[in-house]
Design a protein around this nucleic acid. Structure first.
Lengths: 335, 335
DNA sequence: GCGGCTTTTGGCAGCGCTGCCAATCCGGTT
DNA sequence: AACCGGATTGGCAGCGCTGCCAAAAGCCGC
């Protein structure tokens, strides 16, 4: 248990074999519980492992094993600042843990070039799979993914063609459903308040779906505000204030997500505007706080954790190429 | 660039060497920009790499290199549901990225046994470092970390002794500062509202510091409510409602974090209680939304990103054993 | 046009592990 | 007592790469 060794050389399987008085292959078999071994061998190996404090070297194991590694998954997310992606990771790690697969992560900052560089970097660890966010990638990223000999799972978005497996929901459909809800509730002068669309392509798809559905109802966007930088309550608050200054008559706002919507709600509280009487608010994501608000936020709950879990199952077992997990429109009290 | 190879065997360095008409070592040197090489060799290798779509195998590289790997960092966080940890990861990955080090993550769910198992699992990838959260671990975890031949960095908490490097701030001091602030503002009947303390030891330390400072002022906690499960606005809202039912006379509440405080604020809004007139609210973390609230939340801003960055620098360069990054008390409008 | 020097190069061992295969062991048979 | 089939075992090659070292090539001035 103490395993004092000259730092620099760690205990190896060979050490364990010598200590246990058995061959290397026997130790290997016992440790992986693979092939047959006698009770005696198992005991001696277990003792030696404990005595020496042996930690197997998976680098070597994966190298020697068939088809390189299979115990790492490379995950690239655009950001960690938006709760969505930690939630995704949460679902992933939770489900992958049981299978002994670890996630190596990369954060692309919504930059396709960075994503490509990260894909190459992660692929160099010979992961069992590469998990990407969204369907839009550099050609180079796609080439890497295809040539890499790994499974590829694209998460979150189902609006388009994937490289291999795709798990998510339709952002366009979310936008459309949100618009229909607002229209059905009688709102007519509806604005959009979002963060940078160039950067968050999924938000752009939601907006496209939203505008399309608005169009079907004979309406169009009554103002729009795109805030630079990432989404945040602060940005949502400032955005709504600016939007109202320009379009004092609007009666509803569709936000790029709940964080922005929360900021909008705060703006209304601060300005004494009644919600949804004077102005209705509609978000996206269905975050925890939405339900705790004095007036529960009207929003769309996305299956973020479930996407992670399903993506994990794409690596472990076989599963369909494209999984649409849908979404749920939450009729809160703000729209 | 297309690199069509029979799936199952990926392009190896040997293939590149053959294609480029040079020796393996030359390819290796060129690729790592290590040692000297002629311009001609560099060009031929670059061409061959591009033509074959070669992606180096770091598994093999790390195994062959000195002292095993040095390009992976094992990170264990207790949760991904609390913004704090994604923020930590954000700081980490951001700073480690430049050095080409990738993070392999593990989520312990606040369970020390799980943490130990994860430590062993991560160590088996022979990372350059093991990054843990907090200072409290199983003896087995500590033994692994010490014997693992890796740098160990414990993040977030500085109240206690670390295994190796420690980066964070004093949670006790945060609690004490929060208490002093409330006392100085004239609040006397102060309650605590938190989530499971057994599980979140740092929250426990804050509370201990809070109570100690209250004691110095001749006060003690006027009620406390510990909610089961993780912190969330929903939990904070329900908690404050229950707390007020039991202690209708309290004039301030110290929350285990901003999420809980946000829920408390919502409870006040819903019940029509003026903040801070009727009841003052004080949070912890300084999250984005705190500043966007109609009345900015009084809270303590913690250097989460910076902790991640400093932790990263502990792996890259040399740095002091213990880094206390402090915190900032934000005098909002709610306390 | 030849030493003496530096720069560049390739061969090969070996990192720690696994898969393969032949050797050994065991218990029961004939 | 010699024999047999299956269970168990150990030796060893090799996964893809890097470090070491000696060999080869280039370069200088005389």
């Amino acid at each position: 248990m103490d395993g004092f060794q000259p730092p620099g050389r760690l205990v190896t399987l060979t050490d364990v074999a010598r200590e246990a008085g058995v061959g290397e292959s026997t130790v290997s078999r016992v440790l992986r519980n693979h092939g047959s071994s006698s009770k005696r061998a198992r005991e001696r190996v277990a003792e030696a492992v404990a005595r020496l404090g042996y930690v197997p070297n998976r680098l070597a194991g994966s190298l020697a094993g068939p088809g390189a590694s299979a115990q790492l998954a490379g995950v690239i997310v655009p950001s960690l600042a938006n709760v969505v992606f930690p939630d995704l990771l949460r679902g992933l790690t939770g489900a992958l843990d049981a299978a002994g697969i670890r996630c190596v992560i990369g954060v692309s900052d919504y930059d396709p070039d960075r994503e490509e560089a990260l894909a190459a970097a992660l692929l160099s660890w010979r992961p069992a799979a590469l998990l990407l966010t969204g369907l839009e990638h550099n050609p180079g990223t796609v080439a890497l993914a295809k040539a890499g000999g790994v499974r590829v799972v694209e998460m979150i978005d189902t609006d388009g063609a994937g490289i291999d497996a795709v798990v998510g929901f339709s952002n366009r459909a979310v936008g459309a459903a949100s618009a229909r809800h607002l229209v059905a509730r009688g709102y007519r002068r509806i604005a959009y308040l979002g963060h940078d669309l160039q950067v968050d392509l999924r938000a752009g798809k939601r907006l496209a779906g939203f505008e399309a559905a608005l169009g079907e109802a004979g309406l169009s966007l009554h103002g729009r505000e795109i805030r630079p930088g990432p989404s945040s309550p602060g940005s949502g608050r400032a955005g709504l204030e600016s939007l109202l200054a320009r379009h004092p008559d609007l009666d509803a706002v569709y936000f790029s997500n709940d964080d922005m919507a929360l900021g909008g709600y705060f703006a209304c509280l601060a300005a004494g505007l009644s919600v949804p009487g004077r102005i209705a608010l509609f978000g996206f994501n269905g975050l925890d706080f939405a339900a705790a608000m004095p007036q529960p936020l009207s929003t769309v709950r996305t299956p973020r954790l479930e996407i992670g879990r399903q993506a994990a199952s794409c690596l472990i077992g076989e599963s369909p190429k494209k999984i649409d997990l849908g979404f749920e429109l939450i009729e809160g009290a703000t729209a």
